[in-house]
């Protein structure tokens, strides 16, 4: 489904990605872990076209998307969330979701200003779709609230919902549980597990090991811009290279062993 070949990306002298290759299979949930600064977010940014890689190629469903601009990559069905929730704060919760719907509509400039009947129908349809997702993420009560006024946990859900509105084939989640409390994390885990049924392929970056290990079919580990391990969650957990990468981060090791 998604295939990365030898991706390199440096910022100044810093090699954020140093020749990373791996593949994501259709329908699976791939956990992407690694210490802070390993290059995980950078990898998402390269795939979603936010900045181009220095070298290497990205293929999606056999199509080379390495040099495509962000919005065209989205057209292919790749959507993501951000490590810092990037919701549109001044817009209402429902409007945020309807922006997620953007690619489901086709009204252009002239239909926007003259509002022919089909445009009204399309608006109605987009609103209904968004409302359905809104219900799914449990935010129906805040539909008209300014998104910026939501508590942090709900922001994460909103951002996830916004990506779902876009009906992704591939969904990339960047630390979706960061900043959430225990209960919120559990709800989120269940919610993501529920997406599997919808045949959405997911790559999830996460530090919460119970979440990663519980959800993932496979786990890939990045360290200092390189992939140091890949495989079934159990195997990766005991991989010496992985343990070494986390050396000095005792809490992590504990959580890995848990």
């Amino acid at each position: 489904m998604l295939k990365l070949e030898n991706i390199r990306k440096s910022f100044g002298g810093l090699k954020a990605l140093d020749g990373v290759s791996f593949e994501v299979n259709p329908g699976e949930i791939l956990g992407l872990i690694g210490p802070n600064g390993a290059g995980k977010t950078t990898l998402f940014n390269v795939v979603s076209g936010i900045f181009p890689s220095d070298s290497g190629s990205v293929f999606f469903q056999r199509k080379n998307i390495t040099r495509l601009p962000t919005h065209q990559i989205a057209r292919l069905g790749i959507f993501r969330t951000f490590q810092n929730p990037s919701i549109f704060e001044a817009m209402s919760v429902l409007e945020n979701l309807m922006v997620g719907n953007h690619l489901q509509g086709r009204a252009g400039f002239f239909s926007a200003i003259f509002k022919p009947p089909w445009e009204r129908k399309e608006e109605q349809r987009m609103r209904e779709q968004a409302q359905a997702v809104l219900k799914g993420i449990g935010l129906s009560d805040s539909a008209d609230a300014a998104a910026g006024s939501l508590p942090f946990g709900k922001l994460r859900m909103l951002e996830l919902g916004r990506a779902l509105c876009a009906e992704p084939h591939l969904l990339m989640l960047d630390e979706p549980a960061a900043g959430l409390n225990q209960r919120e994390t559990e709800d989120l885990t269940n919610f993501i597990a529920g997406l599997r049924a919808k045949k959405i392929t997911i790559v999830v970056i996460e530090h919460d090991m119970s979440l990663v290990m519980g959800l993932s079919d496979r786990v890939a580990v990045l360290d200092q811009g390189r992939k140091i391990a890949e495989g079934a969650p159990q195997a990766v957990q005991h991989n010496p290279a992985v343990l070494k990468a986390y050396l000095g981060e005792e809490d992590w090791i504990k959580s890995l062993r848990r």
Binding site: S48, G49, I50, P69, T70, H71, A74, R75, F79, R80, F82, S86, I87, F88, E89, A90, M91, V99, G100, H102, L103, R162, A163, A166
Partner: peptide, 10 residues
């Protein structure tokens, strides 16, 4: 509000 996020939604 956020150009990067807007772009990532197509």
């Amino acid at each position: 509000s956020n150009q990067t996020a807007a772009g990532s939604l197509g």
